[in-house]
Computed example of a mutant assay.
Amino acid sequence: MSTEDDNENKITRITRKGQVTIPKPLRDEFGLEEGDKIHWEKTGDGIRVRKATRSAGRGMLVDDTVTDEKREEMAEEMEADIREMRRTEWQP
């Protein structure tokens, strides 16, 4: 349930340098901390902003219905496969 006051707390301005501040309620809700990377994505109706994860780039090729947990699992499997291929290909 969203109130007008709640929406007011989620409006920020863009600085001269193009910087924005993510409102504290949203930082808290999504676990965003100093140093975290944010992924900006152009969509058909605006801009989507989300916390970047190790698999964020790879996740762009996965259907939007796939959960973040499944994306992370898939990324870990891919990393393990790549490590195994490198180990076997580069063995003297």
Rank of each mutant, 00 (worst) to 15 (best):
T65N: 14
K42C: 04
I11D: 00
E76T: 02
E72C: 00
E77Y: 08
D28W: 00
T67R: 07
R83E: 13
I47T: 15
D36Q: 04
E69L: 03
T12E: 08
S2T: 09
N7Y: 15
E41Q: 11
E72H: 00
T88L: 13
N9D: 14
N9G: 09
G44N: 14
R87A: 12
Q19Y: 12
E4D: 15
D36R: 04
V49L: 14
R71T: 00
M74H: 01
M85A: 10
K24S: 12
K42N: 05
R58Q: 11
K42V: 10
T43A: 12
T21S: 07
D36W: 04
W40E: 02
T43G: 14
E73D: 04
K24I: 14
H39R: 14
R87K: 12
H39A: 13
S55T: 02
L32F: 08
S55E: 06
D28G: 03
G44E: 13
R71W: 00
Q91N: 10
G18L: 06
A52V: 09
M78D: 01
D36L: 02
T53E: 05
E33G: 07
V62W: 12
E33H: 09
D6R: 12
E72G: 00
E79G: 00
E41W: 03
E84F: 09
M74C: 01
R27L: 04
A75Y: 11
S55Y: 09
G59Q: 13
E69P: 03
F30P: 03
M60H: 02
T12Q: 06
A80N: 01
N9T: 14
D28T: 13
I82H: 04
P92K: 15
R83T: 03
P23T: 06
E72T: 01
T88P: 01
D5W: 10
N9P: 08
M85V: 09
I22W: 09
I47H: 11
G44Y: 13
T3K: 09
M78H: 01
E8G: 00
W90G: 05
I11H: 06
R58I: 11
T3N: 07
A52L: 15
I47L: 15
Q91S: 11
M74R: 04
R16S: 10
T67G: 06
Q91W: 12
D68M: 08
T15R: 01
T12V: 14
L61D: 06
R86L: 08
K70D: 03
E8V: 06
D45P: 03
A80E: 02
V62N: 06
T88K: 12
I82W: 12
I47A: 09
R54T: 01
T43E: 15
R48F: 12
K17T: 10
M74N: 02
D5M: 12
M1Q: 10
E34V: 11
K42F: 04
R27I: 00
E41N: 03
L26N: 04
R71Q: 02
E72Y: 00
T12Y: 13
T12A: 05
G46L: 08
M1V: 03
D28R: 08
K37E: 09
E33K: 11
R71N: 00
N7A: 13
E8R: 12
E89R: 13
